[in-house]
Design a protein around this nucleic acid. Structure first.
Length: 562
RNA sequence: GCGCCCGUAGCUCAGCGGAUAGAGCAUCGGUCUUCGAAACCGGUGGCCGUGGGUUCGAAUCCCACUGGGCGCACCA
């Protein structure tokens, strides 16, 4: 990647300057290559001389000049300059930039892929909502974050597995079973109430009705205990099926649906608990078993096994993470949780330490709360009043593409407003359409070229030397850098900004540079004009590749027409 | 009380140690006889919550304060 090439060049230049006695030998700080905000400062810059100035004790401008003088000429660099207070600025070579168009076309849909991840096994676990109710909009944010991050990490060279942890054990499942049994009986005019702690939502009635359509009243004839278990199991499958279908309409899919129950069946729960006990991190208190998190600097201990002998959610999660890191040997595990689970993070990390694992192997991304609005008006999403807007309703109203873009365009750790009115607008106000429109425009140019039978495969990219063309190429070649940033920070929101920037430079190019020869003109097309057309068609196709890839990473469609 | 996240343009938010702080929307004004005007160009608009500190250099790092959100169960 360019940044590495430049930082290597600087390293060599400094070494050379030191050999020549132009610079004293001092310990080298990290060489950071950054992108200047102002275009007149070039494409890349380094402040290395400002940092060296401290150690050397002379003025940074002089140091910068010495270093710059030792930078050898390379294909990539067009110019090196020094600017106060001591920056070394690099401008990319015009011919090198133009050549990148051919590289992009050659790489096609793999353009942007990098080797940063080195094939490391990464698991991203997200959504993982209890299968006891429908997904709401907050879950949508986690779903999109996870699926886009997975795409980006794959592009960054990681071996990624997406997982949904199904909480199919524990008290909430028992409650779900009893609630469903009540709704089922009600369909047969039995006077029973949904348990007071139960799930009262109308969707439970729908599930009960569905089961009756498929299986009739056969559960009414079973002993109650048996009926609850059998009915519940079917209901649970149906709920999971609904969740899966909801997510699929958002183009969110998983490689593994992992059952919590399986941790008890295969003995891994017991193994994890034994490891903690042997390491001295479990203690009995008030009839329950506690994880002694205070021994690891936490503010309080946590119950792992209740006094009635049942494991808590925390205990299951301990076994689950033991399974991920020890049994399945993921190099890195990323959990995406809602902000309401923030308190769970440090506990979970403490558990890993207690199990003798490196807590750095676990990253937790907390998606902050989402508020819904229509234009200026807040949409209440109170569970109690039953006004809750489900994820399904949101997707139906605004569409999967807009949903994905809007959930993605804010960093996970800031709360977000989701404006349904804006997301639905089919106009320039809406960034979703702005980006997709650029793609459609490109398709339409390429279609026109095809209709005219123009074969541009031999187009000469060195003709692409005008500013609008070069600026477009400049933006395109930062795709790999952007992917690396996401891999390092686990912040997929950069995708949306990149997509908008790319669309902007494309539209600017389109305005300034005509691609196809004018159809209205009566004069015959000259050879020079045709050569430019062919070069620009290559550029346009490359732009489509990069924009399409970006949309693809966001999980959005790249339409040929709108 | 303790912990985590946030406070940047009228609004929604990027930027998270570098050069004159950015985008979209809103607002004001320009641009269609030629590849899609769902587009482009320009103007207005900022004590980057407040106060200290570190640094050659701070919106960015540290401390205190302040406003908002979320946690602090033998719930998940």
């Amino acid at each position: 990647m360019l940044k590495e090439i430049l930082s290597d060049l600087l390293k060599q230049a400094i070494a050379k300057a030191q050999e020549n006695g132009k610079l004293p030998i001092v310990p080298l700080p990290d060489i950071v290559i950054e992108r200047p905000q102002k275009t007149e400062h070039g494409d890349y810059a380094s402040s290395i001389s400002l940092k060296l100035a401290r150690a050397i004790g002379t003025n940074p401008m002089a140091i910068a000049k010495e270093i710059a003088a030792c930078i050898p000429a390379t294909a990539e660099i067009g110019a090196v300059s020094v600017a106060p207070p001591g920056f070394i600025n690099f401008t990319l070579s015009k011919t090198w930039l133009a050549c990148q168009v051919d590289n992009i076309l050659k790489a096609a849909n793999s353009y942007g892929n990098i080797t940063y991840g080195a094939g490391k096994k990464v698991q991203i676990e997200f959504v993982s909502v209890n299968p006891t109710g429908p997904l709401h909009i907050g879950h949508g944010r986690g779903a999109i974050l996870g699926s886009a991050l997975a795409n980006a990490l794959s592009a960054a060279g990681f071996n990624v597995e997406k997982e949904y942890y199904v909480n199919d054990a524990g008290t909430q499942i028992d409650t779900f079973y009893r609630s469903l049994w009540a709704r089922y009986q009600q369909q047969f005019e039995v006077k029973v109430d949904v348990p007071t702690d139960g799930y009262v939502g109308a969707y439970m009635i729908d599930v009960a009705k569905e089961i009756i359509v498929e299986q009739g009243d056969r559960f009414m004839k079973l002993p109650e205990k048996e009926a609850i278990a059998a009915l519940g199991k079917i209901g649970l499958e149906k709920m999971i099926g609904k969740i899966r279908a909801d997510l699929e309409t958002l183009r969110v899919t998983f490689d593994v649906w992992f059952s919590e129950k399986s941790l008890y069946a295969n003995g891994q729960y017991a193994t994890a608990m034994k490891l903690l006990r042997d390491a001295g991190y479990l203690t009995e208190k008030e009839g329950a078993t506690w994880f002694v998190s205070t021994a690891l600097g936490e503010s309080k201990d946590n119950v792992v096994i209740r006094s009635d002998g049942t494991p808590t959610y925390f205990a299951a999660d301990i076994a689950y993470h033991y399974n991920k890191l020890v049994e399945r040997k993921f190099d890195q595990v990323i959990d995406i949780w809602g902000a309401d689970h923030a308190g769970h993070v440090s506990r979970m990390k403490a558990v890993l330490t207690a199990l003798g694992l490196d807590p750095e192997r676990l990253d937790v991304i907390l998606g902050q709360m989402v508020t819904l609005r229509r234009g200026g008006e807040l949409v209440k999403i109170s569970k109690r009043s039953g006004e809750i807007i489900t994820l399904q309703e949101l997707v139906e109203e605004v569409g999967a593409d807009a949903c994905r873009f809007f959930f993605l365009c804010r960093s996970a750790d800031s709360q977000m407003d989701f404006d349904m009115e804006l997301a639905k607008k089919q106009s320039s106000d809406n960034p979703v359409y702005y980006v997709q429109y650029a793609h459609a425009r490109i398709s339409s140019i390429l279609k026109l070229a095809k209709e005219h039978g123009i074969d541009y495969s031999q187009g000469d990219v060195s003709l692409l030397c005008h500013d609008p063309e070069q600026n477009l190429i400049r933006k395109m070649i930062t795709l790999p850098e952007m992917i690396e940033v996401i891999a390092k920070t686990l912040e997929p929101h950069h995708l949306t900004y990149y997509a908008q920037d790319l669309a902007t430079v494309f539209h600017a190019f389109y305005k300034d540079c005509r691609v196809m020869p004018s159809q209205k003109s009566t004069a015959p097309v000259t050879d020079e004009e045709m050569a430019v057309t062919k070069a620009r068609l290559k550029l346009v196709e490359a732009a489509q590749t990069v924009l399409g890839r970006t949309l693809n990473l966001m999980g959005m469609t790249a339409p040929d027409k709108m």
